[in-house]
Design a protein around this nucleic acid. Sequence first.
RNA 1: GCCCCCGUCGUCUAGCGGCCUAGGACGUCGCCCUCUCACGGCGGUAACGCCGGUUCAAAUCCGGUCGGGGGUACCA
Length: 496
Amino acid sequence: MSTSMSTPGSTPVRVRMAPSPTGSPHVGLARTALYNWAFARHHGGTFVFRIEDTDKARNTEESYDSLIDLMQWLGLSWDEGVVVGGAHGPYRQSERTEIYADVLTRLRESSYTYDCFCTNDEVEARRKASGSKVMGYDGFCRELSDEQRSAFEAEGRSSIVRFRMPDGSITWNDLVRGDITFETEFVPDFALCRANGDPLYTLTAPVDDATMEITHVLRGEDLLSSTPRQVALFDALKELGVAKETPAFGHLPYVMGEGNKKLSKRDPQAHMALYREQGFLPEGLLNYLALLGWAIAADRDVFSLDEMVEKFDIKDVNPNPARFDLKKAEAINASHMRLLSIDEITHRVLPFLKDAGVVGDPVTDPDAQMLELAMPLVAERINKLTEAAPMLGFLFVDEADFERDPADVAKLLDETGRGVVQASYDALSGLHEWSTAAIEEALRVALIEGMELKPRVAFGPVRVAVTGKRISPPLFESLELLGRERSLGRLQSALA
RNA sequence: GCCCCCGUCGUCUAGCGGCCUAGGACGUCGCCCUCUCACGGCGGUAACGCCGGUUCAAAUCCGGUCGGGGGUACCA
């Protein structure tokens, strides 16, 4: 796969993806996973898959399952993490509470944090009174005296632990955006845990990245503004011996929906499950997702995952938000469909044919044989896996259940159409050899020459009579596959 | 409000001071192929947000401005 390993002398690359199991997986998440995966594979590093489930109220097991399922479907393998385990586990934050409790204790014993007794209302009231333009916590409890503490405790107030942001500014060299600087006066002291002691994301993410020895954090742009807090916390964690190094950060652009809005979970287009159901190929979808912020070359946009791994460089990632365009996603997917062999397409289409009831499960031998003959006819005319079933149905259906599209019947099996069908029946019923070439010859003689019809006028009614639809695989081949008996029967029943 | 990020065809992008009368792809329009559909082929359409500055030369560098987005939680 990749030949370029991590830079000589540097520590091996370790990246992670760390979704929260809320709702169904999102395309933005998949794109982030892909970039992390490609980055890891390019550098011969390790890809860690961890779950950030500290928000008990919002997490669901269904969501967790769908995350695993999605990653497996996409084929983005991870080296360490949930399911596969590893040396830095456990990989679900809900199972790491002792780790956070321990770090929190050590942080409290240092001067990096302080206990805060304020309520939101108090903070807000003080902000209004002072006229400060800076929102968020004002540092009121930073220098509490023992007496003040005791007084608050005597009142029965609960407290949380806040991280004390240092003075000055915090700068990091963002992997996709370059130097970014925040003055810490605009980054308020932040909470590390809830009043009940439960750790918050602000604590768990850096602690996990530290203990899992993550070297590069590639995540969504929405987390950019929390980065100065994490950089500051990492300084403390290094001091305490919890972290070795502060990871490099890279903030990936948003994936947008219609308009100027980030693709939200409410938007049906946002959900990865939809694309799987619609018959997208994982490699096609991945290819499209890769394009949302990255290009493999100036004049190319269809490529394999291996090629992406070889060429992927985080420095080439575009910082501006990208809009998800279904049409282009489908076009890219179609290109990947055409890259597949007939056998492979058949294999991928099969589950969809079963779902649609076109073939049974398991597939019978005659059906399997028919499929082998029919797939070459449809393979190159479908752009998604789901498109095969409606095209092939007429070949597999029992004669008793065969139906024609009423609209197509109305349109094409009118007076002239029925005449055409009758002529076709006459021409084909006496045919000695039931082959594509013989069928075509007979029909052309009867309809084009005999009736002096234009081909598109001549074959439309026959198509509807035999396949039930105006749109079908090539007609003469279809007739051959259908067989003499069924073909003639359908021509006849179309006249009834 | 304040802080931060972003700004090339409708969309995704290439572009890192001269190769740019800005390239590719999707879309769209027209034509060709053609038994339908799809594929394929050919051609057209369409962009550097704006204003200053630096420079012999700017889409590329700098400043400002406008516009969009995000953050400002005991969510992640």
